[in-house]
């Protein structure tokens, strides 16, 4: 009987997943359809907390699709510094020196302004299904809402997180929780998303908290003050010209 029980449980799980009639790829497609916008503008802030207190960075970001983003800091300490993301390349602009720095490779995983977000976290990782093999682990109830529990395994080397777990709200298609792991399975970062509001027919989390699992008393909160999903973006906004403007 002891040998049969796990088999029965496994069959039950398979039956449950079959009944849900949705694949992991379809869930990710729904997440990306909800998340990715063709012309987006966000006014936001990032609060970095550690044992000495907190530091606030404010920013404006523009995005088009999954792999184009321009972010400009507006707080006095970093005012005018910009990050431009185009596919797997990131450009940084420092206005005081009129200098453009091109980041590639491991530098993409460097922390942004001492926060728990890396450049890749801030500017997105591009197409999830191109980069990760996704597996549906099951359904879970979180805060009274049905969630899909997914596992993401990197298809190629060099990604910031070789393995991730994600929990997707089955109604809004918002990823409300995500854990990122190293290749050896060590927990690296925990992310929670909340304050989900409907904007232009899409569900947008207005609050994100990222904790680095390796550091005590450290977290970064990101808040969206305003968001426009049908922003009137100039056609050449994702360019060197705009970066150095």
């Amino acid at each position: 009987m002891r040998r049969i029980m796990p088999l029965i449980m496994a069959m039950g799980l398979i039956a449950t997943l079959s009944m849900s009639a949705i694949t992991a790829e379809e869930i990710i497609a729904n997440v990306e359809r909800n998340k990715i916008n063709e012309a987006e503008r966000i006014d936001g802030s990032m609060t970095i907390s550690d044992r000495f207190g907190s530091r606030v960075k404010t920013f404006i970001s523009y995005a088009a699709g999954a792999d184009k983003m321009l972010l400009e800091f507006t707080n006095p300490e970093e005012k005018g510094q910009k990050i431009l993301r185009l596919k797997d390349e990131i450009y940084l602009y420092f206005p005081e020196a009129e200098e453009v720095i091109h980041l590639q490779g491991s530098a993409l995983r460097d922390s942004v302004m001492g926060s728990d977000f890396s450049y890749e976290d801030m500017t997105g990782e591009g197409d999830i299904l191109d980069q990760y093999k996704v597996t549906l682990l099951g359904e879970e109830n979180i805060d009274g809402r049905k969630h899909y529990h997914l596992e993401l395994e990197a298809r190629k080397r060099g990604l910031a997180y070789p393995k991730q777990e994600a929990w997707i709200d089955a109604e809004t298609w918002v990823m409300t929780r995500a854990n990122s792991y190293s290749l050896s399975g060590r927990l690296l970062k925990e992310m929670e998303l909340g304050d989900i509001r409907q904007v232009a027919g899409k569900y947008v989390p207005h609050y994100i908290i990222m904790r680095d699992a390796m550091k005590k008393n450290s977290s970064t909160e990101m808040r969206i003050q305003s968001i426009d999903l049908q922003a009137d973006l100039p056609p050449d906004i994702f360019s060197l010209e705009e970066l150095t403007w």
């Binding site: 185009l86 005081e96 020196a97 200098e99 050449d236 994702f238 360019s239 060197l240 010209e241």
Partner: peptide, 23 residues
């Protein structure tokens, strides 16, 4: 300094973009 060369001068400049990464 974070930047070691920061000299400035009075100048006039014209910048003409030629696509996203050329000018």
């Amino acid at each position: 300094g974070a930047t070691l060369r920061s000299e400035t001068a009075w100048l006039g400049a014209v910048y003409i973009p030629l696509g996203a990464f050329s000018f």
